[in-house]
Design a binder for these strands. Structure first.
Lengths: 465, 465
DNA sequence: TGAGTCGGGTCAAAGGTCCC
DNA sequence: AGGGACCTTTGACCCGACTC
């Protein structure tokens, strides 16, 4: 802030107004700048009328308080760095000094530190104004300081994501060499991706601290959205197809009507906007985490913890997108679209299953079609937010699933999935066990031959945890 | 913070004005210096219930970052010289700042120098773009771009909202005097609210510039969400009930199971979070507008225009919530919950209709249950985002509606609703006509006696426009 | 063409840093 | 625990290219 240099002598009149009544330097406030000094501060004024023996040039270079060499004007008076700093510290800290003598101490370069009371008084008399001292500013020095809203960090999320990525698809083979998926291929890919989702979640320490029931609840609640989100990201480089995790593709035309319809929505409503936004890896993992830690989750016990985690994730996304206005909002708004597409996919899957066109195994049943047998009587009455439960829940009030649909195709009883799970899995060299180290990788899921993985004895979420 | 260099009477600097007598020098008075504690950052725990900011008075003259006097547009945002220089220096030197607090520092004229991280972030959020900062003394001729965020303003939205509010409910009569709604009451209220939604939309100039087909498409696409959003807001003062627009209530228990279930979800998943956030009117109208201008809308032709409008709305919401970190995200994330609850309500309504428990008239059929006969052959193949269409669409591939459900209850043919609508309505003194002035108000809809409004000859959206 | 806009740059006077 | 030499940042003001 620049102040006209000639107006300084008018500026001292307001001290009393802005002063704190308890301000202990009050007695300085009535002081006026000494006339002689004022003249010296006005360039071009002294030479005309005052026969000052000291040349103007040198007086400007002298501190008006202690006559040390001045480094410029500070707070309204030409002063040295010492008096400048002294004045700032005194005002900032609201220091109250007292004179041990009779308030007539000499203040010069040598003795300026002998009486702070007289030095500060001379600062005011020289024209320094406490109003010119500003508020404390930000630090300049760049010490790295972790700030962490919570404990979730981008790094953890990126690592979890990298762990469950399929590097073999990175080399972007020619699309023409890829095969068009049949319904079985789609189900197979979904199953693989769901297993990878479990592995992904297990890489998030905060997830692991939740109860088993809550972990299962989270994994089930939005698995369909995760499948869609994953396939949308995977399909970003392409224009006319959806690329599955097992390297099959779904074109928009030329395959089953139902599949191409969902695929087309994925492209138009998700892939296209994501392309336009040019979503980064960081943003993607944040979105995924936001979807994952959904507090409106059927049967969730520790709602507050999950809320906190989602809050952290959305703040992380906010930080990651802060350089482009509107970007954060656009990304978050894609989640409603994601939810819509996911629900349509689930409905299609349910239809295919009911029509006998798809062989849906128990893991898909449990995670995608909303088998809810795990919900005990303590389940929250108001937590019916997953779409599957709405349409085909086991809830007694659903006429669709019980009154009509199940007349045609009885739904198997899946209460077995909540039975205690053995701590070790059936012996299978390809599978990780609960007792062994976590060595489950994409090679074992995503790249697993279909014939083998479709017979995996790993049907429930509980088993995977 | 410009000081006229020629006037001497400006001796009281801006800093002097802002020097609060109670300012303690050492503390960041305005800042919430919170310990890094996640609990405090969760919306419900936030102490500050941001009061509605003063409606932008001459906002073009204010710096969008610190509210100092703006000197014009700089790098994409109306800003003062200070923020202009700060942004340029930051971008040029590629500075990476760190917030010493929790990244929600207030950035105003007084405190803008207290946290460079938050200041820079606010620059970006206000629309400044890195690319607008040029390297050296070279000038790129590409002027005129970037800005034109849009024409939507908070004021227009607030006025449209006020117009469709029911003032008689503001005096918050005793809940005990209100009657419990039966299914018919609910349908009646929904119909009234849908008519008010049309009136609300007509108060938004940008909506009126769209084609009739697009207007109808927007009104249909998310009407269920608007009903839920409205009822949630209306129910904010209460704890155990949902308050309908026609003053009936829905308790969580003691009425039909289906109704109380949705009501309970509305409360637990929407009213409760909104209460904790203490949502303002400004935020509410922004949310409503974001829901309304959904670009993934079946049959929408002018997708880009709608996208722009939603973008404007979400940026307005962002600006309205920028004082509290995470608030914007929490509000946006409620929209997925809103979508979920709305779909459940639609499903319940459909069930009630199919079971003969509800008398659903053609307006509700068209707007809530997704009659899609208006979609011509030019309809976008990939725009099936409305939930009703998913579940009970007339699309040939839906086994649910055609193959199974309609075996029991044949669906009437509603193609009549798209027939050309006569430019004048059947004579009815209560109804506005297309040729007359717009005099439709809440007195005519929300406060209309049930017996009359249920026989309104206003069945289609087209007719209302 | 001439006022307005918005890029650029400058530098006095604020700020902060850190050894003594 | 300040003091003060020394360095960084701020922002009011100016310039110039471009637009209308």
């Amino acid at each position: 802030m620049k102040i006209s240099g000639t107006s300084l002598n008018l500026s001292v009149t307001d001290y009393g107004i802005t002063l704190d009544p308890t301000f202990t330097m009050l007695e300085f406030d009535g002081l006026r700048v000494l006339p002689v000094q004022t003249d010296l501060l006005i360039p071009g004024h002294a030479s005309a009328s005052a026969p000052d023996p000291v040349p103007q040039q040198s007086s400007m270079n002298l501190c008006a308080i202690c006559a040390d060499r001045a480094t410029g004007k500070h707070y309204g008076a030409s002063s040295c760095d010492g008096c400048k700093g002294f004045f700032r510290r005194s005002v900032r800290k609201n220091h109250a000094y007292t004179c041990r003598f009779s308030r007539q101490c000499v203040v010069d370069k040598d003795k300026r530190n002998q009486c702070r009371y007289c030095r500060l008084r001379k600062c005011f008399r020289a024209g320094m104004r406490k109003e010119a001292v500003q508020n404390e500013r930000d630090r300049i020095s760049c010490r790295r300081e972790g700030q962490a809203v919570g404990t979730l960090t981008i790094d953890v999320l990126l690592q979890a994501e990298a762990f469950t990525q399929n590097p073999s698809q990175n080399l972007m083979r020619d699309i023409n060499t890829k095969k068009i998926a049949c319904v079985g291929d789609v189900c197979e890919s979904m199953k693989q991706q769901l297993l990878l989702l479990v592995e992904w979640a297990k890489r998030i320490p905060e997830f692991c601290t939740l109860s088993v029931d809550d972990r299962v609840a989270l994994l089930r609640a939005h698995s369909a959205e995760h499948l869609i989100l994953g396939v949308a990201r995977r399909s970003l480089p392409y224009n006319d197809i959806i690329l599955l995790g097992n390297d099959f593709i779904i074109p928009f035309r030329g395959t089953e009507q139902e599949m191409s319809k969902v695929a087309s929505r994925i492209f138009e409503e998700l892939v296209r906007p994501l392309k336009e936004l040019n979503i980064t890896d960081t943003e993607f993992v944040c979105l995924k985490t936001i979807v994952f830690f959904a507090p409106d989750c059927p049967g969730l016990q520790c709602v507050q913890a999950v809320r906190r985690l989602r809050f952290q994730a959305q703040v992380l996304l906010d930080e990651a997108t802060s350089e482009q206005r509107g970007r954060f909002g656009e990304l978050l708004l894609l989640l409603t679209t994601l939810q819509s597409v996911a629900w349509q996919m689930v409905e299609q899957l349910q239809l295919m299953r009911l029509l006998g066109k798809a062989n849906v195994d128990s893991l898909l049943m449990e995670m995608l079609l909303g088998e809810e047998a795990t919900r005990g009587p303590e389940a929250l009455p108001a937590s019916e937010s997953n779409p599957e439960a709405l349409i085909f829940s086991t809830a007694a009030e659903s006429v669709l699933s019980r009154g009509i649909l199940t007349e045609h195709i009885p739904m198997p009883n899946f209460t077995s999935v909540i039975l205690p799970v053995p701590s070790t899995l059936p012996e299978d060299p390809l599978l990780p066990t609960h007792t062994g180290p976590e060595v489950f990788t994409h090679e074992q899921a995503a790249d697993m031959p279909r014939e083998m993985s479709s017979s995996l004895a790993m049907p429930t979420v509980h088993t995977c945890l």
